[in-house]
Amino acid sequence: MLKMLGAALVILAATLVGWLKARQFASRPNQIRGLILALKRLETEIMYGFTPLPDALQRIANQNKEPIRSLFTVAAGHMNPPNNWTAQDSLQHAVESQWGFTSMKKPEKDIMNQLSYTLGTSDRQDQIGHIVTAIRQLESEEVAARDEQSRYEKMCKSLGLLSGAFVVILFY
């Protein structure tokens, strides 16, 4: 009886690991889409709103769900007193400190870091151009993430269950 309970727990744990990995594959494209929409809102704020950058970042944070919200909240928070960091420093810090809470990978992180170098350092038109470039790059990453999702999501679910069954078979 105890062996059966242990076997069931091993299979359950391995299945849950597979499902968690599959959820990462499923949430990555959605988070990239959320980041794209947030950058489009930032583009609108810069172009038409004439909103100071910290206020624009905070507005965008308020309009998004986690983990995108915390990314922009941290960036906006460090640009305000008492820190008064530059847009580059605050966005890079936000990316470094909050990226682990997302399902996004290094290419998206590199795009955001690249955007941070130009944000707040030039005129409106130049900033809009850099944001549009980042959006285009993120859109291509979203296509790749959707492809990965369709390819690996079901496999991870199945592999979790099968690996749990394999471990149980090995122990018997």
Rank of each mutant, 00 (worst) to 15 (best):
P54G: 06
M79V: 10
R59G: 05
S116W: 01
S158V: 12
M47L: 15
D110E: 15
H78R: 12
I32G: 00
G49P: 03
D110H: 04
F50N: 15
L42F: 02
A75K: 00
T118A: 11
I135R: 01
Q88T: 13
E96H: 10
L39W: 00
P82G: 05
N83V: 10
L16S: 12
A22D: 07
M4P: 02
V143K: 09
V95F: 02
A87I: 04
G120V: 06
G120W: 03
E148D: 15
F171S: 02
I68K: 01
P82C: 08
P107A: 04
F50Y: 14
L115F: 03
T73L: 12
L2D: 14
F72R: 06
I169W: 08
I169H: 12
W99E: 12
E66Q: 07
G49C: 04
A165Y: 03
V10H: 01
K21I: 09
N80G: 02
L37I: 05
E142T: 02
M104L: 12
D55S: 13
G6W: 02
T73Y: 04
Q125P: 00
S150V: 06
L138A: 02
Q58A: 14
D126H: 13
R59K: 14
D126W: 10
G120L: 05
L42C: 01
A56Q: 00
A75V: 03
L159W: 04
K3G: 07
P81E: 13
R124K: 14
A38C: 05
T133Y: 05
I60C: 08
M112A: 06
D123E: 04
K109Q: 11
P81M: 11
R59Y: 07
A76G: 04
I36R: 00
D123N: 08
P81I: 09
M4D: 05
